[in-house]
Amino acid sequence: MTDKLPYKVTLSIPFETHEQATIAKNTLSPDPIVKSVDEFNIEYEINDNILQILFSGASNRIIRVTISNTIDNLKTILECIDEFEGKQDHLFEIDGEKFTG
């Protein structure tokens, strides 16, 4: 199968802790990225605090699209970690942010 997917990229994302990396992996991994296994494959590995994501695809285009999407998702995950980790006992205060409703 690997012969059919000649394009490969690995992202290594260092988190602060092993737990953070695990949360990120569990958040990303449920979503199927492309319908066909023949065109694309994604694997997640955790080494201590580093999340490694291995993309392999039939074209570089498919790799670009999926990496872009994964990075967008990682941004949300990181923002959640930054704002909410360890704060389950915290009362949030109303800030100056305006919403359109």
């Binding site: 967008d72 949300t76 909410f84 704060k87 006992d89 949030f92 205060e93 109303i94 919403f99």
Partner: peptide, 25 residues
């Protein structure tokens, strides 16, 4: 639309928790 949601989701969650005056627990 997805970009908009990603940009705002954490801020909207924080406000919803703040207005409700509840903690994660």
């Amino acid at each position: 639309t997805a970009r908009h949601h990603r940009n705002w989701v954490v801020r909207v969650i924080k406000r919803a928790l703040a207005v409700a005056k509840i903690k994660g627990t």
